[in-house]
Design a protein around this nucleic acid. Structure first.
Lengths: 211, 211
DNA sequence: AAAAAATTTTACCATTTGGTAAATACACGA
DNA sequence: TCGTGTATTTACCAAATGGTAAAATTTTTT
């Protein structure tokens, strides 16, 4: 019997290397074609291994997908975790925007994998969302609300603010195909997006208190 | 030989009805599972017809998908077309935001179908994007730039402004699964999103001119 | 170097899926 | 009501796809 689970003792050098190759290949293919649109043969070709060889390391297509999704959650939460209650509110939020935008540029595959999963109703991910994302989201919303109550930020909806940050930043990874059609200077996109988002969220966060 | 194309003379009552049932069913299924994730049997079941019967009306799965995508483009461009050069700039743009947000609520399937297609690199849609979306996008960007030059709007990047509008509004349809996990009061989501986006884009558009 | 364990390949298989051919049922105008 | 074209079903098929068994090969241990 083969031992495919990390519950077993020590993975060999070959095992670590090949698992990584498979996951990298699978990320590439899944992020481009979605779960159902991806075949094991595609992953195998991309990884430079044979299909049965891939099934030697993973119990099946679903397990590969789930492994990627789990790995993803960590890097996904990281920028939000860094939102620091001790820092200056405006600066903290604007920095978060930039971190998220940088992530969309540096990890577009992860972004698209996530987007595809959510788009299809998060069938394999909603437990993770509940368990990891929701608590963090609630905590950071409460933090922003506290800043508002203290008068350090104008009155605004923390939850929808965060949605707007996610939406605008991830847009550059998830809708990349559209962005590329519409913009003539691809190299400048990131810098311009960065300035625009700084301006937009800066304006929102600097709004003079109503009343 | 059957006549499946609209190039033939008059579609019968039965033909109009069934084509519509098929397209409605296909929109539902494609928007939930993506192109590859959708089977003809699923569409057939959803439409209440047999698979061969569906292939009597459409030449194949791809043709159904393309038909939906084409139909989509029209309703997709419509809100942007209405951006009126004669109106008040701020009001025009804020109205556009609301129109787009209403669309995300009223046509979530269309939104997700579009998102899925772009996410996968727009393999069947990039010609349409080039031919229809790009010219309109350029025209409206030029209009916004003119408003800026006339001093009716603060200095901002028209292209990325439009991206932000698309991203924030469509987010509520495309990432609905995530939004539902994170928010406790689903019925209020639309109203709150509406207020938040009005506030955010209102702040951006009301920015005092720098320098 | 031999034995044991781990890895990879070869040759399959069952199911699913997009699609077709031909027979059958149906609608409707003359 | 009869005939003709329209619509639908039945019975398939070939290719693709996820997956398996077991032989063959390579690596590691003794």
């Amino acid at each position: 019997m083969t031992q495919e689970n990390q519950t077993d003792k020590k993975p060999s050098r070959i095992q670590t290397r090949n698992r990584k190759m498979i996951l990298d290949a699978a990320l590439e293919v899944f992020s481009r074609h979605g779960y159902r649109g991806t075949t094991l043969d595609q992953i195998a070709a991309e990884a430079g291994l044979s299909k049965p060889n891939i099934l030697y390391y993973f119990d099946g297509k679903a397990e590969i997908h789930v492994t990627l999704l789990n790995r993803l959650m960590t890097s996904w939460l990281d920028p939000l975790i860094k939102l620091n209650a001790e820092g200056d509110p405006r600066h903290e939020i604007l920095s978060y925007v930039q971190r998220k935008l940088d992530m969309a540029r540096d990890l577009p595959q992860e972004s698209r994998l996530f987007a595809g999963e959510i788009l299809q109703g998060a069938p394999r991910m909603s437990p993770d969302l509940e368990r990891h994302l929701k608590p963090l989201f609630d905590e950071k919303c409460a933090l922003i609300q506290r800043w508002i109550d203290e008068g350090a930020l104008p009155s605004l909806n923390p939850q929808h603010l965060i949605f707007s940050i996610w939406a605008t930043t991830q847009h550059y990874a998830d809708f990349d195909a559209q962005v590329r059609v519409l913009l003539d200077t691809p190299d400048e996109t990131h810098a311009r997006a960065s300035r625009h988002l700084a301006q937009m969220f800066g304006a929102l966060l600097s709004l003079p208190e109503a009343r």
